[in-house]
Simulated assay, not measured.
Amino acid sequence: MNTKVAIVTGSNKGIGFEIVKGLCYKFDGAVYLTARNEERGRQAIKKLENLGLKPLFHTLDVTNETSVEEFAQYISKHHTGIDILVNNAGVLDFDKPITSYEDSKKLMDTNFYSLLTISKILYPLLNDDARVINISSDWGLLSNIRKQHWLDTLVKEDLSVDEILQFVDDFLQAAKNGKNSYMSFAGHYGDYKVSKVALSALTFVQQREFSKQGKNVSINCVHPGFIKTDMTNGMGDFTPERGAHAPLFLALEAPQSLKGTFVWHDCHQVNWDD
């Protein structure tokens, strides 16, 4: 099938759900709502169908390589590639500003390590002129990190994926070493901050790689705003619908030449490393 394809990970609720809704209204192609839990995913699909929209559904657990591979095989069988990929899946325990090593590792598996799995399995399916949007956060700005070594390392023009992995591993070791070590790395909610800083850094490294390979793929990260969702216990400045505004701008309206940038919720570019 030659239909264009848009995919949003972790999209059965919150910002992801609103991004799917916006794509269904504005994108001329197939829009995939994905979720780990099939029942919740189907319920979300039903809500959109009640609005007269026609999203497609597929189960996808971004932390499970087999699940990602099965999804990739399905897309390969039914379509000619991926045109829009929104990496939205993410977790945060808002009630725990300081978490254990085990909890921090689980968060990293969803918020960061999953992107490496997606890169390996789904990125080869990206069509020319494809757009990848990584959902970051204002906590994904480099200024959230307190360790000078990593402030210096993560801004290098030749930063590598291995160095980003070392950054994440260094934090997890700090989490293993206890509260004081945890706090000295990135403060409260350090695991979430580190996951989003790592995601942002990975965005820039991967854009550099795409450009080296001569592929006209744009990959950007975006702070959607402080959104009232289940993840924030309903606290926030914006509704999920408003939170979808900048991601949808990157997916549908931004020039293809906008590449490797950090975009704010009002769609302007910001310096990630200020």
Rank of each mutant, 00 (worst) to 15 (best):
M1P: 00
V8A: 08
V8M: 07
T9D: 10
G10D: 05
G10A: 08
G16R: 03
G16L: 04
E18D: 12
E18C: 12
I19Q: 05
V20F: 10
Y25L: 14
G29N: 05
V31P: 02
L33A: 14
T34Q: 06
A35Q: 05
N37W: 03
E38K: 09
E38F: 05
K47Y: 12
E49N: 15
L51V: 06
K54R: 13
K54S: 15
H58S: 15
D61I: 03
E65F: 03
V68L: 12
Q73I: 09
K77P: 00
K77M: 12
H78D: 13
H78V: 08
H78P: 00
T80I: 04
G81T: 05
L85D: 03
V86S: 03
N88C: 07
G90L: 06
L92E: 05
D95F: 12
K96R: 14
I98R: 09
Y101T: 06
D103Q: 09
D103W: 01
S104G: 15
L107D: 02
S114Y: 02
S114N: 01
L115D: 03
L116W: 02
T117C: 04
T117I: 11
K120D: 10
L122C: 00
Y123I: 04
L125V: 04
L125I: 00
L126H: 06
D128S: 13
D129H: 15
V132A: 04
I133S: 02
N134A: 04
D138P: 00
D138L: 14
G140I: 01
L141D: 03
L141H: 08
K147F: 12
H149P: 00
W150A: 01
W150G: 03
D152P: 00
D152Q: 13
L154M: 13
V155R: 14
V155T: 15
L159Y: 05
S160P: 00
E163R: 04
D169Q: 15
A174V: 04
A175M: 10
K179V: 10
M183F: 02
G187R: 05
H188C: 04
S195T: 10
T203W: 00
Q207G: 00
E209M: 07
K212Q: 06
K212D: 05
G214D: 11
N216Y: 08
N216K: 14
V217I: 15
N220S: 11
H223E: 15
H223Q: 15
G225N: 09
T229W: 08
D230Y: 11
T232Y: 01
M235A: 12
D237R: 12
F238G: 01
F238Y: 15
T239D: 12
P247I: 06
L250V: 08
L252M: 14
L252C: 14
L252Q: 13
A254R: 09
Q256S: 13
F262V: 05
V263S: 02
V263C: 02
W264D: 13
D266E: 13
Q269M: 13
Q269N: 11
V270I: 14
W272P: 00
D273M: 03
